[in-house]
Design a protein around this nucleic acid. Structure first.
Lengths: 138, 138
DNA sequence: GTAAAATAGTTACCTTCGATAACTATTATC
DNA sequence: GATAATAGTTATCGAAGGTAACTATTTTAC
């Protein structure tokens, strides 16, 4: 299991902002990809809906994320508040420094190859159906 | 966080043998690398000693792992029992199938590059000291 | 056009797996 | 020989995942 040191170290960096990995992943998504519904976040992260509900709630309590009505009366779209966007920028600095440090000596080429590969694998897992998520069939 | 689908899917595969990722990682190490002390396992995995103690205990109860005296009266070396080695082979089949499936369409070259890169990063994290583990200084 | 099925989200509760603190027993060091 | 360090354990906590069962709304099928 190669990824453990990454996560461990990332968490100690995020702790400076009283954040954990799961929270940061959501903030990151909302800023860089899209304001999103809970189901979108759930699919993106490959975790079940209740897990997202919990993490988002924590971020809401801190005034980082807010829910706005979606196109349905069911849907709620999560987005960063103004304070949340500012917070993102602060944390971003820490994370940038971290990434720069651990990627020192890694070539652009290598990195691209690795990321592309992992993304391919991920897609194939999700496609195969066994990595499916968010489909509460009951 | 790219690795989640991997772990999730791996866990569903391992569940066929009533195993979880953390347990499998230890079994894997003991078979492929070495019989090892708790501290070795702790360093290898990048987790603290009590975490290893617990996981090893579970494997001991199932008769998969046994402790033999080390070169000290303090040290205990963990190793697979005969039953454990056989068990390894069974699980191995499942894991092989899983790996083959998810790595379909990934070139040998790509894979090597990615693994080498991650290992480089890991080393640089551990070296920097912030990924340190197993040094209970109290 | 309504009954049944599907979808978005929540709540309650459980499990895995990590961490810390504080301890015992043994060995090394000064 | 007293103090440090090392190997391992126990107890307890927290983060982050999962399932089951639910409400409210929307879609689909008949």
């Amino acid at each position: 299991m190669l990824y453990r040191p990454f996560e461990k170290r990332l968490n100690t960096e995020l702790a400076k902002h009283e954040l954990h990995r799961a929270q940061w992943t959501i903030i990151y998504y909302l800023e860089n990809i899209n304001p999103a519904t809970l189901v979108e976040l759930s699919n993106y992260q490959g975790v079940e809906k209740p897990t997202i509900t919990r993490t988002v709630s924590q971020l809401e309590e801190r005034g980082i994320v807010e829910k706005v009505p979606g196109k349905d009366k069911r849907e709620k779209r999560m987005q960063l508040t103004e304070a949340g966007k500012q917070f993102y920028q602060e944390v971003r600095k820490t994370v940038d420094a971290y990434e720069e440090e651990i990627l020192m000596g890694i070539s652009e080429e290598e990195l691209k190859t690795a990321i592309r590969m992992m993304d391919d694998i991920r897609k194939s897992i999700i496609q195969s159906g066994d990595g499916e998520v968010g489909t509460n069939k009951n």
